[in-house]
Write a protein that binds this DNA or RNA. Structure first.
Length: 411
RNA sequence: GGCGCUAUGGUGCAACGGUUAGCACGCGGCCCUUUCAAGGCCGAAAUACGGGUUCGAUUCCCGUUAGCGCUACCA
């Protein structure tokens, strides 16, 4: 099959040869190598690129050399094409070099591998491609390809060149800018729809001020004609903002499977959360957590105490909210008060805690903050009483009792 | 060097001959508050420069400058 493809490219090159649109080139590969300094007698920095090969008018073949095939670019006139983004575009043929079609053969081969220009055109003709949408770095290649389509008796497709994405240093996005493939952003924990939305707006806008557009909106509104022609800088902060927006606004049933996948990845997932009451609890917990989460992995790390009993108390949180010497005693008393509660819900927890605070003559905030650290190990979490409900009485009481002596040591 | 493309706040986009140049991210402040987010309000911040065309230019034309792309027997 690969072999068949090679034949297709070679046949196309030979067709160009036959109809006078290509020629055999016997120049040694080194002749045009070395970029800007190829031309002999050239002064550094003042070099003109060679665009016409001396073999184009038929040179006697030097003995022992195998030829490559080059395209015979017209020496005058213009080559034009329609670009849906950049408009009707034209290039002077005199500025287009006699580009390579087929490499010279190795060993027993007649000819070698096809060059990029040849293979894409042959493939696209073969696949009956009607629209070629690609990066603007291909604009200069396009007239060469149009010439090739004509030489192969094929109608050129419609082109659309998209502006390039630049790093913060305004250089083309590359490895040194961090993630450069979409899968890397998925691995970092960005939601695919957020990423999609962000990317769509890099080089395009629907015309007004709307920014939050889900896939269906994007599909409906996107037009190639509205794409801008200026390269855009990839702004990761804005991507992150989009992610938090999607984390909060996505229908919960849409988010749950993605969080499930994340917990599977981190080994925190429990099968009992897949259905029934377990799923209900899981959904509720994800919903509670999501306003504060920035990336998917935060569900495993930052929210660990919700999904596992093995979590650690953050020393900074401890230092901030357990510094009052009354804390250990308060936590112990709260544990008992909660254990004795006839029912377990938001208001019951709320009343019990405030009653204790009043009885002990401390501000409710002191107890609330200390409790949060005790039951989730951190200074930051969802509203306390919702957190308590989701964690369940058993775990809350247990964690409070465990925290009491720890807080004592800390205080 | 040649050829091409582009040029609105730090960033992404609006305004496609007439607006106090709009929105969003980010930044600063205030409000809300039980931590932290979210949310609400306020603020600083832009038409690269120079010529034209026009009653009128961010918008059209030319030049300059800058950035990017292409300039391989790479893709």
């Amino acid at each position: 099959d690969v072999y068949k493809r090679q034949e297709l490219y070679r046949a196309a090159a030979k067709k160009c040869l036959a109809n006078g649109n290509a020629f055999l080139c016997y120049c040694p590969p080194e002749k045009y190598a070395g970029g800007d300094h190829a031309e002999e007698g050239a002064e550094a920095g003042q070099v003109r690129r060679v665009v016409r090969c001396t073999c184009r008018d038929g040179q006697p073949s030097p003995p022992g050399t195998k030829p490559a095939i080059r395209f015979k670019v017209p020496t005058s006139g213009k080559t034009t094409f329609l670009d849906l983004v950049f408009g009707e575009t034209e290039f002077s043929n005199e500025d287009i070099e006699d580009f390579m079609l087929l490499r010279s053969g190795q060993d027993n081969e007649e000819f070698g591998q096809p060059m990029y220009q040849l293979s894409v055109v042959v493939d696209d003709i073969d696949m009956r491609i009607t629209h070629v949408i690609r990066g603007a770095d291909h604009i200069s290649n396009t007239p060469k390809q149009v010439l090739l389509y004509r030489a192969l008796d094929a109608k050129p497709p419609i082109f659309a060149h998209l502006p390039l994405i630049l790093g913060p240093d305004r250089k083309r996005l590359s490895k040194r800018h961090g993630a450069t493939s979409v899968s890397m952003y998925r691995d970092e924990g960005f939601l695919h729809e957020a990423f999609q939305n962000f990317l769509a707006l890099l080089g395009w806008a629907p015309g007004g001020d709307v920014e939050f557009m889900r896939t269906a909106d994007l599909l409906e509104k996107f037009k190639l004609e509205g794409v801008s022609r200026t390269n855009g800088v990839f702004d990761k902060a804005k991507l992150e903002w989009f992610n938090t927006q999607y984390l909060q606004k996505l229908p919960i049933e849409n988010l749950v499977p993605q969080v499930q996948q994340e917990l599977r990845r981190s080994g925190l997932w429990k099968e009992e959360w897949s259905a029934g009451a377990g799923l209900q609890w899981f959904t509720r917990t994800v919903d509670l957590l999501r306003p504060r989460v920035r990336l998917l992995p935060d569900f495993s790390a930052w929210s660990r105490a919700f999904f596992s009993d093995e979590f650690t108390i953050d020393p900074a949180a401890e230092a901030k909210f357990w510094k009052d010497p009354k804390v250990p005693d308060l936590l112990a008393k709260l544990a008992e008060a909660l254990a004795a509660l006839p029912e377990w819900n938001h208001d019951a927890c709320d009343h019990a805690l405030r009653a204790l605070a009043e009885a002990e003559a401390v501000k409710a905030g002191l107890l609330i903050n200390a409790t949060r650290v005790a039951i989730v190990g951190q200074a930051v979490a969802p509203p306390l009483f919702d957190t308590m409900v989701v964690l369940g009485r058993e775990r809350v009481v247990k964690r409070l009792r465990a925290a009491s002596p720890a807080a004592n040591a800390s205080a």
